[in-house]
Design a binder for these strands. Structure first.
Lengths: 231, 231
DNA sequence: GTGCGTATAATGTCTATACATTATAAAATC
DNA sequence: GATTTTATAATGTATAGACATTATACGCAC
């Protein structure tokens, strides 16, 4: 397990920072000095420091040097799985029931003024209602969806497989179910639900906006922060 | 705005992948071929591909080549702000009321068996209860907290300022308030709350675990996916 | 055919060097 | 003294090459 030199340098400084040996705001050695300490070339040092900067542990300033970053807000990586895949992974049977499908012109939101397909339906896991979904898809951005069989494949899954997006934002809240929603999800009115509202774009063009209501207990969002981010 | 060459290469392939020109599973050109296409050295290509691999867009396999990653789960960047800073940013007055503070030995969870400080309290925005917090802090990992004035600074804020962590995971759910929680938050029993459970580590050492209950409507989590990821 | 070794093509890491960029510090000017 | 200019020290990007590593593919023996 001979660690690559660059990785060794990265870890060495990570260690020094996390142990408190190097405190926030303190300037760390110049790349030249680190080269000398580890007996390697500057590129190797630079790569290690670039990785640490990417992880938010240090801040690099030209001419001034490299400094231990002050602890800021942490950004976590939120996993947003495809519902069909998630349910299948739990060993349950997934089904989506499409309740409504109609063309319209969006009157509000980021799709306002565009011809859209308006879809509502319910996600089931082993026959139990798990989530209610209200989705609007731009027919300008995704004309192919007009011909899609959305009874066979849920709109979210279909979109995932057919339309890559470049940008998305999510709003995650807790809400109480309305009476209509409670009926669809087979829970008591006012029962707590996790609400995810997502809007997506492909470049500048809005693609879809969706509001998903998850029955409490049937679903949880997981987010992670860690070395490399992808770990 | 002359883009650095490596960044130009990164964007070019990001574009080709997101636009669908390069589909999941497809092999992209070898580093040699990309060198030729952009007229640059292999290190530059490699750096660009390493960045894309870090973002999860591609997968690199020795001997085999580089492939467009299959769209697994979408990874969004979740902002986890400090509550005190968040409330202040909304122009409201923040206060934390510490209700309980006691030493114990954790009996469960990732801190099990360790001496810990057990803390509960309520976050207020302009005098209105916003969130209930139940936190356990490892005294082994953070001995300094024994001497901290947690009435002046909420535990989360104190930890953010004093103890960097390297790893964290979060579980986000919706729950109904218990009667005790409802009383503390001044809401009806069973009212929906956004529940965030977070565990953090410094290296291998567990640092803290916390359960925060946010009154519905008082708080929302925001996550974003966009070009660059680090942008 | 089946299994095993070996060649090989691709990525992974590193070096030594060069020049670009830029924020700071020092010097020159007003 | 205040302002502007210039020098400089640090990071930022890139090159061209070298060798390491490793999964695949091919060929050979059985």
């Amino acid at each position: 397990m001979t660690l690559p030199l660059g990785e060794a340098i990265r870890r060495a400084f990570e260690q020094r920072i996390l142990s408190g040996a190097l405190k926030p705001g303190v300037r760390l050695p110049t790349e030249q000095e680190i080269m000398a300490e580890f007996g390697c070339s500057r590129m190797t040092v630079s790569k290690a420091l670039t990785a640490l900067a990417g992880a938010g542990l240090i801040e690099r300033r030209k001419r001034a040097g490299t400094f231990v970053a002050r602890p800021r807000v942490h950004s976590m990586v939120l996993e947003v799985p495809d519902l069909a895949a998630l349910v299948a992974a739990r060993g349950q049977t997934y089904r989506f029931r499409l309740d409504r499908r109609e063309r319209a012109v969006a009157s509000e939101g980021h799709l306002a003024g565009q011809p859209v397909l308006h879809l509502t339906g319910v996600h089931f896991a082993d026959g139990t209602a798990m989530a209610f979904e209200d989705r609007t898809v731009s027919l300008a951005a995704v004309p192919e969806i007009a011909a899609a069989d959305l009874a066979a494949e849920a709109p979210g899954t279909w979109l995932l497989h057919h339309v890559p997006w470049t940008e998305a934002d999510n709003r995650i809240t807790a809400v109480a179910t309305s009476s209509a929603e409670a009926r669809l999800l087979d829970v008591a009115e006012g029962a707590p639900c996790l609400c995810v509202e997502r809007r997506t774009w492909r470049g500048d063009a809005p693609v879809t906006s969706v509001r998903q209501l998850f029955v409490a207990g049937s679903y949880e969002l997981l987010a992670h922060f860690g070395p490399g981010g992808a770990a």
